[in-house]
Amino acid sequence: MGRFWFGVGLMILLLALGMYCAQAVTNSHEPIAQLLEQAAMTPQQEDAAQLLKKARQDWDHHWNGMAILSDHGPMDEIDSLFAQAEAYARQGLAEELSALCMRLSQLVRATAENHSPTWWNFL
């Protein structure tokens, strides 16, 4: 009987932990994706660079937690794209920066979406 309740408890705990993690990933990634989207849309190059910097800080802040839960491959790709975007910002390449920020925004959003309990992820 004890083992049965341990099993039930374990299943409930894992379900709750899974739902919490999915929500935490969405909550942490969505603001980053929005910042990057804004950076892509901003006509002022300096504003875009500031938004990119803020997005990078937030991304780095959540990096460890995310690395525990998901495949490191896509995260490494996002890291390298951030580095590339920062280089574009330093060189004043506004068009390239805008395109890259939009791409980054999509990637960050997709990374979070991979953890959400949607039917397409499930299947």
Binding site: V8, A67, H72
Partner: peptide
């Protein structure tokens, strides 16, 4: 090495939980 330990642990613990419940039932 690029895959977190969690991706293995969660399914193993889920299997354990289901096995304990089903064996009791």
């Amino acid at each position: 090495e690029g895959i977190p330990l969690f991706t293995g642990l969660v399914p193993i613990l889920t299997v354990l939980g289901m096995e304990l419940i089903l064996s009791f039932l």
